[in-house]
Amino acid sequence: MISRQDVEHVAALARLGLSADEIDLMQGQLSRILEAVAQLRDVDTSQIGPTAQVIGLENVMREDEARAGLGRELALANAPLREGPLLRVPVILEEGR
């Protein structure tokens, strides 16, 4: 079982505000997800190297050639809020990235 603090920490990183009830709910659900994934620990991996990719490709690169993209109207077509040519979002108080 993960702690309520863990849930609050993950929620803060995801910028989600959770009510006390939702924290309870997430604590249970996240714990069950982690338990399910933890079953992988039972597999013997002593003979298997670290694996981040299984598709067998490598060095897939493209040449540095520019092409026009979507264009502004299409790019912002689904934006809930706009201000002229810019996308408008709620302010994030934590500054400095």
Binding site: D64, E65, A66, R67, A68, G69, A75, P85, L87
Partner: peptide, 29 residues
């Protein structure tokens, strides 16, 4: 000339102003 993971231009054409949200595509969005 192009972005890191897609073919969008990294800058406006010479002499052109850089209009916001014009050098974008599904990958970099």
């Amino acid at each position: 000339s192009s972005k890191m993971f897609c073919s969008c231009p990294t800058g406006a054409a010479a002499g052109e102003p850089d209009e916001p949200n014009t050098r974008v595509c599904p990958v970099c969005l």
